[in-house]
């Protein structure tokens, strides 16, 4: 069942990467509220001050803590958030670690279809 309104947390240090993800998500014509963060720290601050999002798209390579370190924290504090690691680092070893943590692995650049599939799968 898809709720009438969904919320998604977008974590990427690159504004361009966030812009393109945002554009693709908006093209899906779903009712989605977006929260944007440019680092693991600002993502945690956002999570603390907002309703818990349904999904999180998380970049791997970021200054400070990387995407999997953030995902680990989110998993502990907000286990209901469904997460995907979104990265150009398409190494098998990294994809494997993401999968072991229960994250989807979306290679960059993403397509709107892939994002739609991730959001709507249940």
């Amino acid at each position: 069942m898809i709720k009438t309104s969904l919320s998604l947390l977008l974590v990427d240090d690159s504004r361009i990467a966030r812009l393109s993800l945002k554009r693709q998500i908006q093209s899906l014509a779903l009712d989605i509220t977006l929260l944007e963060a440019d680092s693991a720290d600002s993502a945690e601050a956002l999570l603390a001050s907002n309703d818990t999002p349904d999904f999180a798209l998380i970049d791997f390579n970021m200054p400070g803590r990387d995407g999997l370190e953030l995902a680990e924290r989110i998993k502990q504090s907000y286990p209901q958030v469904r997460m995907a690691l979104v990265t150009a680092n398409i190494q098998d070893a990294l994809a494997q670690r993401a999968k072991e943590m229960g994250l989807a692995f979306l290679p960059k650049p993403t397509t709107a279809e892939q994002l739609g599939t991730f959001i709507q799968q249940d």
Binding site: S14, R15, I16, A17, N61, T87, A88, N89, I90, K108, P109
Partner: peptide
């Protein structure tokens, strides 16, 4: 910023 993200994707 665009070049950084492009480089990130291609080099990775």
């Amino acid at each position: 910023e665009t070049l950084a993200e492009l480089g990130n994707i291609l080099l990775n």
